Amino acid sequence: MKKRKLGKSDLWVTELGLGCMSIGTDEKAAREIIETALDEGINYFDTADLYDFGENEKIVGSALKQVRENVILASKVGNRWNQDKKGWSWDPSKSYIKEAVKQSLKRLDTDYIDLYQLHGGTIEDQIEETIEAFEELKSEGYIRYYGISSIRPNVIREYIKKSHIVSVMMQYSILDRRPEEEALPLLHEHGISVVTRGPLAKGLLSDKMLEKVSQKGYQDYSQEDLLTVLPVLKDKLAGDRSFTEVALQYNLTHPAVASVIAGASSPEQVRANARAINSPSLTEDEIALIKTISKTTYYKEHR
């Protein structure tokens, strides 16, 4: 599987990463998903301290222990479970981040995290303090690099100006093209990579697309919009290939994108996603067609 450089780091991540949130808490089944990802050549695994109250980190760390030096391990911080475990609060403070990383390292059973990401962020945060925490963790050797997971333009701009982030994780798909006009060009200009999540738009961009349409619609698309647009996209673009291929390849068309993070709840899904990533790139005509059929959308909030 091809690799791309993550920002200005020396990390080379596979074009497909495994989003570990959906692997579940059955250790045997989860391990099988992770081992399938390794077999497919995936080297990039993304978890967070929030997932399954930390159990996810434990499972991921255990499954990757024997190949630790050959993989890129990413985790996230900033969301703090309440004592009753029924919800969480946002805490991007330096003291919390520096304590939380130690707990993550313990659960992951590793000495360092390759990419540590702020799991959210608002413009009201003490951003300089948060950056200071990540910079200290880097100099102390607990983490190799850091990034943020955010779709808020105002937050992203602050981190570009003030920090040494190497990546921004953001939602991006054919049905959510908000990053295209502003975020992707800006980040690319500054040598910061984008790691995309939600590339299949909750299954709407898979071969089960119409089964996944709900009354709520999706982003700027109503239910009626989706029932009209999805069949046209499939008819014009899928042909001999699965629509998953079209969807994942679309994410890779922008040079700012280093890796597409796709979740999987079974080994079969991992294999299907790997086939999609390894399939031929979209042509310029196909990209233009997608942009004609789908909506150009913009970030309206957090300006």
Rank of each mutant, 00 (worst) to 15 (best):
K5V: 04
G7R: 01
D10K: 12
E15S: 13
L16R: 05
G17V: 03
G19R: 00
I23P: 08
G24A: 10
G24N: 12
K28V: 15
A30K: 10
R31G: 15
E32S: 11
I33H: 01
E35M: 13
E40F: 03
G41N: 05
I42K: 00
I42E: 06
Y44F: 12
Y44I: 00
D46C: 01
Y51G: 06
F53N: 12
E55W: 13
N56F: 01
K58V: 15
K58E: 15
V60R: 01
S62C: 12
A63P: 10
L64M: 15
Q66N: 15
V67W: 04
E69F: 01
I72L: 06
A74R: 03
G78S: 03
N79V: 00
N82E: 07
Q83I: 10
D84P: 04
K86Y: 06
G87Y: 08
W90L: 04
P92G: 00
S93N: 07
I97Q: 03
E99N: 10
K106A: 14
R107D: 11
L108W: 02
D109E: 14
D109M: 00
D109R: 11
D111F: 07
I113T: 12
L115W: 14
H119K: 02
G121C: 09
E124A: 00
E124T: 08
D125E: 07
E129L: 14
E132A: 13
A133N: 14
L137N: 14
Y142C: 03
I143N: 00
R144T: 01
Y146R: 03
G147T: 05
I148V: 07
S149N: 15
S149L: 07
N154V: 05
V155G: 08
Y159T: 00
I160C: 12
K161Y: 03
K162R: 13
I165Q: 04
S167E: 01
M170L: 13
Q171N: 12
Q171K: 11
Q171H: 09
S173W: 08
I174D: 09
I174T: 00
L175F: 11
L186N: 06
V194T: 02
V195S: 03
T196S: 13
R197N: 10
G198W: 00
L200Q: 13
E211A: 04
K216C: 01
G217Y: 03
Y218A: 01
Q223C: 13
E224D: 14
E224R: 10
D225C: 04
V232R: 14
L237M: 09
L237K: 10
L237R: 10
G239R: 15
D240N: 13
D240Y: 03
F243P: 07
T244Y: 03
T244C: 03
E245A: 10
L248H: 11
L248S: 11
L252D: 08
L252K: 04
S259T: 15
S259F: 06
V260D: 07
I261L: 15
I261H: 07
G263W: 04
A264S: 13
A264R: 12
S266G: 05
A272W: 02
N273Q: 12
R275V: 02
I277M: 10
N278A: 15
D285Y: 09
E286Y: 13
A288P: 00
I290D: 02
K291S: 09
K291N: 13
Y299R: 11
E301V: 14
